[in-house]
Design a protein around this nucleic acid. Structure first.
Lengths: 212, 212
DNA sequence: ACACAAATTTAGGCTCGGCATAAATTTGGC
DNA sequence: GCCAAATTTATGCCGAGCCTAAATTTGTGT
């Protein structure tokens, strides 16, 4: 098998670089840390860092695949008779109650790192857009929309926007130093209001049919 | 008066640099053109270009102030008894009928320049966000929302999202080489559907009171 | 165990955007 | 026409990203 030692060491190297980078970023801020410093701290060549992480942002936001796919996956797995909006609301509320990273990202340090860096903020915007695109594709396929139909994209935009607004709220509260418990309480209330706001428009959209 | 020749020449220099840059960008693509080339073509020092336009993106998207303020201004100027959504719909439809840049930006060359450049695409995302923030501030002030209230931001996000979706549609059609007439027709239809979609949720939000 | 091929890492250098600083030039007011 | 202020220029530096060739490490076959 070729999936042996070589692949293992690659993953170790990659992880080591990522961990080192994250530590330095949290410690000194994303913009202050240079790729050369990361390479030195991880005891690899500068080029090796670039090989694994083409852009510097990738070192800090390594879980982007999960993030991008999250909403699309939630909607794809919605229950029979459940709308896309209802599924996203349910999933979001569950995440809030679990107190866990509504976001995949977590903690005030992490939020600070992003907020303090224009580069990371921009990348996060891009991730939100990619997430929206992924959701739009699921909606288009699931509602059997015509190719040129704007509806899935508009709906995906609205749904993602709702999520992004709450996401931002979590970030803001996290930056303000509130603990997870308080954040969960405040965001839960806000989430109900935001989802309720969209309910009249989207309650009937992309409802998964019940088998007849 | 100090608003004389000196200020005039500054504006001329600025305009000359901007025009030169735009021409080169359209001709060869944003990423291919270097700041040094722009400076040479405009017959100024490289540093002068940077002085007027701190970021390279600013050379291509010079009308950002107008863009950012557009939605906020439309809502601020809405008629008595008119909701924020209705005002934005009215303004958008009027722009479509005028055939003019729904966007402030216009033409397939311009759209191509942006679409081909990750840098410009990212900057455009940022401009959308700034536009959303500006709109949120107007809504918060106008509805006298409490400081921590998420509603204005959520509403601004939804309204901006609707606009952005249609904006994207214009870009796509422009890139596909459709002429202004066809774009206007297609987008007008799409716009009605998108605004209708939001109507149930936002018809009653931020309605300007009639003087009693 | 050894050699060879393939994969991975390293070293070096290059371009470009962005920023800092000081010198040189141009302009407005007197 | 002179002087102070504003503007432009020249120069150099840093960091991200990319390219290429050399060096090292690993997997496979004998």
């Amino acid at each position: 098998m070729t999936a042996g030692l070589r692949e293992l060491k690659k993953q170790q190297t990659r992880q080591s670089i990522s961990d080192t980078a994250t530590r330095l970023f949290i410690e000194h801020g994303f913009e202050k840390v240079t790729i050369a410093e990361i390479a030195a701290a991880a005891q690899v060549a500068k080029m090796t860092v670039t090989n694994y992480f083409p852009r510097k942002e990738d070192l800090a936001l390594d879980t982007h695949e999960t993030f991008i796919a999250s909403l699309a996956r939630t909607v794809a797995a919605r229950a029979e008779g459940e709308s896309a909006l209802a599924a996203l609301r349910r999933e979001f509320m569950a995440a809030v109650e679990r107190h866990d990273a509504v976001t995949g990202f977590s903690g005030p340090d992490f939020a600070r790192m992003i907020a303090d860096s224009p580069t990371l903020t921009a990348r996060l915007r891009e991730l939100h857009e990619l997430r929206e695109d992924a959701l739009a594709r699921v909606l288009a396929a699931d509602t059997e929309a015509a190719p040129g139909d704007l509806t899935p994209r508009a709906a995906a935009a609205l749904l993602t926007t709702a999520h992004r607004t709450l996401f931002q709220q979590v970030m803001d509260l996290s930056l303000a130093g509130r603990d997870n418990r308080e954040i969960a309480a405040v965001v839960a209330g806000a989430a109900h209001r935001v989802f309720d706001l969209l309910e009249p428009s989207l309650a009937g959209y992309a409802v998964r049919p019940r088998p007849s």
